Structure formats: C-alpha cells, structure tokens
Simulated scan of single mutants.
Amino acid sequence: MRAIAVREFGGPEVLEPTEMPEPELRPGHLRLRTRLAGVNYADIHLREGSYPAPMPTPFVPGNEVLGIAEDGRRYIALSRGGGYAETAVVHRKLAFEVPEGIADHDAIALTLQGNTAWHLLFTDLRVTADDTVLVPAAAGGVGSLAVQLAKHAGAKVIAMASSEDKRRTATALGADAVVDSSTPEGLTDRILEAAGGPVSAALEMTGGDVFHATLAALTPRGRLAVFGAVTGAEGLVPITSLLAGSKAVSGFWLPNLYPSRTHLNDSMSALFAAVADGWLRPLNGPVYKLGQARQAHHDLAARLTSGKVVLDLDR
C-alpha cells in the first residue's frame, strides 16, 4: 500500500512516499480504507521529534483518519500515527461512526481538532455565558471551531488572527471582536482594547512572548489553557504574576482522554449534533494528495492555511 514514512527526524523533506505491507489487524482494532488523513501541528512536532510522546523512526505519521470499514460503514478515528497511508488500523474505542448527512471533510475536522476545542472550552476551562474568551489562530482548525462553540455557549469571543483575511473569517464565524496577532509587540494592549478589558478565559498555543501577552490580558482569577507551543519557545511561567492575579494556567493534551472513552463519546455526540443542527460549521481548508504531504506540512507551519488541512487518499 502507498504511505508516507518518516525515517529520520527533521524538516518536511524527511516525509518520504513509500510502499509498505498492509498493517496487521490486532484484537480490539478496526481496519479502515483511508479516505482522508488530517494534517495537524502534532504531526509536525512528531516529525521533528518534539512531540510529547515521540515515536521511534521509521514511522507513518497521521493521528486522525476518516475511512471505510470492511462492513462498508464510515468512521473517523484517532490514532498514534499511521494515518498517512491507504489503510489504517485503529483502536475500536477511538473510532466513531459518522452519521448520515455529515460530509467527509466536516467529519475529519471534528476528530482531533473538534474534540480538542470542545474539551479545552468545556472540560478544562469550563466556559459559560459569563466568560469573555480569547481564541488564538481563530481561522485555524481548532480556533475556528472554538470560536463557534464558545459563542454558542453564550460567551463573548475575542478572536486573534495574523492576517486581514483570517480576521474577516473569524468575524464571519461569530467572533465579537478580532485582534491582529501578527506580532507580539503590544499584543496585550490590543487584546484589552478589543475585549473592553481583561478576558476571563483564554486558549494559548504559540508560546514565548505570545504566552506572556495572553497571561497579562487575563482578569484576576482568569484561566489559561495551553495546548501547544508552535514557536517551540519554552520559558518559565511567571509565578509572581499567577499569585498576584490568582490566575490559573493548565496544560491540555487530548490523548490523556483516550484511556476512557466516556469523555470522547460525549464530545463526539455533541459535535455531530451541532453540525447536523447547522450551527457548527467546520472550516474546510486545503486538500493535498498523499504525495504532497511535504507541501502540506510546509504550508501549515508557515501559517499559509486556514481551516482543516487534509490529505485526500482518493486523489
């Protein structure tokens, strides 16, 4: 079967098209003929060797797929690698049948990024209608869904995006105000101006100066959920700032919810229902062929994409 392999850690050039045997079907698992494989920042970190749960090389990247089971039913599934291939073997407890009427591209957007947005807002931050929520990368896969989910919950939503086009997209998704996040200089002031004061809850996935600017924009007793560090910049959390403002900073990594399917069952049911009801509209991004995985990684890392980025195995 056709697949993309990483034989050594590095840049996009290490993504190599290859032929390999069909993966073995293990007990408790499901074999899917892959239609779509999601492309995420997690794949980039995995390729670079900086993922929280690194994999030894060689491996096939891709932590989410949409595919057809041997009985003809359509599933989305979360996995630990293996998605960039014509056939994927996934654990049954991390596979969810896609309801009729939900398009393939919409369903794959809900898999990793939809679940992440849902649990960041409602499991970690416990957002309610009383909150003002700051959403970064609001035209991206997680951000575009988080804007809509938070708005539907009644919160005031302040969206950040790095370009005028992306800020217009965030407004169209329902954001109450938008902030230019193209540079960290003066970012706290721009957030406070857009929000009309401090925000009570915020998502963060950039790291470095953007993390500190976001933390500074939090109200006393505000909550900040960190789910990535795109810049790769690590720094000390300013303890004095946390104490002075009674602020809370938490980390979130979706795979920590995998051992118990209960949380994912709840979020998947809610996400499917929201799309079926029409108020949640996944933002479909660019579609690449399997052999264009290098380009997909380059474009995502360079922030040239909006919405859900996928590899189409049928192309």
Rank of each mutant, 00 (worst) to 15 (best):
T128N: 09
A129D: 13
T132E: 00
T132Q: 05
V133D: 00
L134I: 06
P136A: 02
P136F: 00
A138Q: 09
A139M: 11
G140M: 07
A146S: 08
A146R: 03
A150G: 06
A150E: 01
K151I: 14
H152W: 11
H152P: 02
A153S: 12
G154H: 13
A155P: 00
K156D: 00
K156C: 08
M160P: 03
S162E: 04
S162H: 07
S163F: 04
S163P: 07
D165P: 00
K166G: 00
R168Q: 14
A170V: 00
A170K: 01
T171N: 11
A172L: 13
A172N: 13
L173M: 13
L173I: 09
D176N: 14
D176L: 13
D176S: 14
D176A: 14
A177L: 07
D180K: 06
S181F: 10
S181T: 09
S182N: 10
T183W: 12
E185T: 15
L187D: 03
L187K: 07
T188G: 04
T188P: 01
D189I: 11
D189F: 04
I191L: 06
I191W: 04
E193D: 14
E193R: 15
E193G: 15
E193Q: 15
A194C: 09
A195W: 04
A195P: 06
G196V: 08
P198Q: 12
P198T: 08
A202G: 04
A202M: 05
L203H: 08
L203V: 11
E204F: 06
G207M: 07
G207F: 06
V210H: 13
F211Q: 07
A213M: 10
A213F: 10
A213S: 15
L215P: 00
A216C: 05
A216I: 06
A217L: 08
L218W: 02
L218F: 04
R221N: 07
R223H: 15
R223V: 13
V226N: 01
F227G: 05
A229N: 13
A229P: 07
V230F: 14
